[in-house]
């Protein structure tokens, strides 16, 4: 088991960002779903050793995060993609990844450059690596940040909304890359794209208002909305959420009125039901 979080909480002054949560995870991809402000980024920052929890124990890859030596050991085998990532002014893509590689203790230039080339090739950025970052598209910049996370073949990958800004084709390629990487590694991905979770994650955790509301398989999450999803022409007062679905009519979740015919629930339905009306509805499925 690579990830052990025991009663981990985080408080900023008066505001509690994360309730005491406990989470154990091993190899494979773990999906973290939740609306904005649910505490996903806080949790991932703790997992990436970027911030320390206010309380609780964090053990990653067999090391204790409370010790400086433990953190250093974890960071040597960690790849992190933050939600917002800036770039130093005037850097090219290659220089950026090279800089991070130095921070990951690749002191020898030749081996370091070979490794930089390797991760750039994995993310399909070889041809644009020589370009200044400010001249790269948003999708390419995102891929650049993912590339730096792959340096050194990390055992633990923490990805905070990595597919934001990627077009559907790039998202597909990203899913392929991550599925391939999950072999023999622990990957934690936070997202609010439920399709990513369905495609990628054998296990999903739903975070809401700082607490874990669900921890299990995607099909189990969908099953939570069993019998609670129906379509009708008009919005029913018992519906918690309603939106226009393909084929006309309103797809609604909540307490179905008598006579309404329930439709098979998707993972998204289960998720939305769980987070109540505060869940974010991304777009109508095409």
């Amino acid at each position: 088991m690579d990830i052990h979080l025991t009663n981990v909480s985080k408080t900023y002054g008066r505001r509690r960002a994360l309730d005491p949560v406990s989470l154990n995870a091993g190899h494979g991809v773990l999906g973290l779903l939740g609306p904005n402000g649910a505490g996903k980024t806080t949790l991932l920052r703790i997992m990436a050793t970027v911030i320390a929890p206010t309380a609780g124990q964090v053990r990653l890859l067999g090391h204790d995060c409370a010790l400086a030596a433990g953190r250093a050991a974890i960071r040597r085998r960690l790849g992190y993609v933050p939600q917002e990532c800036g770039f130093p002014a005037g850097f090219t893509g290659f220089e950026y990844v090279d800089y991070v590689a130095i921070l990951k203790e690749w002191a020898d230039r030749r081996t370091r450059h070979d490794e930089v080339r390797r991760v750039l090739a994995v993310m399909g950025l070889t041809d644009v690596a020589g370009r200044r970052i400010r001249r790269l598209s948003g999708g390419m910049r995102r891929r650049l940040v993912i590339a730096q996370a792959l340096l050194g073949d990390p055992a633990l990958l923490v990805l905070d909304e990595p597919t934001v800004g990627l077009d559907p084709e790039q998202r597909l390629r990203f899913r392929d890359t991550v599925s391939g990487l999950a072999e023999g590694r622990s990957v934690v991905v936070s997202t609010h794209q439920t399709e990513d979770v369905v495609a990628l994650c054998p296990r999903v955790v739903v975070l809401h208002e700082g607490g874990i509301r669900y921890d299990g398989s995607p099909s189990g999450l969908a099953a939570m909305a069993d019998g609670r999803v129906w379509t009708a022409a008009d919005r029913d007062p018992g519906a918690v959420l309603a939106w226009r679905s393909e084929g006309g009519g309103l797809r609604q979740i909540g307490v179905p009125p008598a006579g309404a015919e329930p439709v098979p629930p998707t993972l998204e339905d289960g998720y939305l039901l769980l987070v109540g009306g505060t869940g974010e509805r991304q777009e109508v499925p095409a």
């Binding site: 050793t49 960071r75 770039f87 940040v145």
Partner: peptide, 13 residues
Amino acid sequence: DPMHEVVAAAPYS
């Protein structure tokens, strides 16, 4: 530092 989080997650002292 615009790339602070990435730096913080790296092992360099």
